[in-house]
Nucleic acid binder design. Structure first.
Lengths: 206, 206
DNA sequence: GTCTATAGGATGATAGAC
DNA sequence: GTCTATCATCCTATAGAC
């Protein structure tokens, strides 16, 4: 896991606090997405951001608070992307299709969807679980109330979203060229956006 | 997390090695399902099984090997359940419907689906990721080759399966009575089996 | 704002008795 | 087969200098 975003500044370089915070959140999102909440270490996040480990902890207070901030940022970005997609006047495509395209685009934000996914499977954790439930419901409410989907459409959207998350998390694209079942699955799940997925995969090959 | 399965035997009680192995796997499945691979400790698994921590490690060699054994057992049980459901001569229902019912029944096996889910989101791990990909593909191949689903049916089954896993993992049922969006979501996702989900939830309330 | 040094607590794994 | 004792490692968080 090398640095994230903007090239790592020289150690000790000062930065405006908002920028630094965003840089740390982006790095943390990538690392949490890859290793999960418990598996990600504050040290790995610090290295990804090019700062010291204690600084990461200092900035957010605790690792848990950092993860909650990552989740909040991920949810914000998702809803912004959805609202933007809905607002675009493209009468030819359905609301579901537009939101789906915006969802897939979120894959470019490294670790964003997977950090959420890791949170979703930690429902037993008193703090993270509560945040994860609220985040999931926030999306569900958006689909019903703002996007105007009916219950069945909302359920279908969420189901295919979870399948996409899972296929990305398990790195099924690693087998795209070598396994027929993997290829069929990815082609079925991402009819138009396979190229995006493979590009992201190759960018992450280390 | 108290003991699992059969009442905890007195410390030091000997057991036939096959039985003991199954007991440890059941306990490990529950703990891994709840806390994930990294978050689950061999100590918590040992306590859930009523044995000592070193014994758990000794029996499987490493925590990683234990997790792989849990995944293998989960996959075996899933495929057995699917094949049984297919074999039952119930011409009234489709293959998808019969397999779906069998899938939901797997929720009774505590932590089984969630342990798989935790593995699925750890695709970056060289060992666990490879096992997770193979496990997922194993199910996908079963759906296409043995169950006779077409690509779109298989994709739909997997998508709703991942949504179910996520709703269980995030413990959405905890909000069933208090949040309208949660209730609508669960009612849509589990039209017939809400009672099973709520029963399992209440059984796990500690 | 950011770093170095380090305390303090858990955790996976090993050794060896019974 | 199973336990007790213990080691070595890793990791979050704190203290304090610059």
């Amino acid at each position: 896991m090398s640095s994230v975003d903007t090239p790592t500044p020289e150690p000790g370089t000062r930065m405006r606090s908002g920028d630094r915070r965003e840089q740390l959140l982006a790095a943390a999102t990538a690392v949490f997405g890859e290793r999960g909440y418990v598996g990600a270490t504050t040290d790995a996040i610090a290295r990804a951001a090019g700062v010291s480990q204690p600084y990461v902890v200092r900035t957010f207070g605790t690792k848990e608070a950092l993860f909650l901030a990552v989740l909040g940022r991920a949810l914000d970005r998702m809803l912004v992307a959805f609202r933007t997609a809905l607002a675009a006047d493209d009468p030819a495509t359905s609301a579901t299709a537009r939101i789906s395209a915006a969802y897939v685009e979120l894959l470019s934000d490294r670790g964003l969807l997977l950090s959420l996914m890791h949170a979703f499977v930690l429902g037993s954790d008193p703090v993270i679980g509560a945040a994860a439930r609220e985040g999931f419901l926030c999306v569900a409410r958006f689909l019903r109330e703002e996007a105007g989907l009916d219950p069945e459409e909302a359920r279908a959207f969420l189901a295919y979203g979870m399948l996409l998350n899972t296929l990305v998390g398990v790195r099924m694209a690693d087998l795209y060229e070598t396994d027929a079942a993997a290829r069929e699955l990815l082609d079925a799940a991402m009819p138009t956006k396979i190229d995006l997925l493979l590009r992201i995969r190759d960018a992450e090959k280390r």
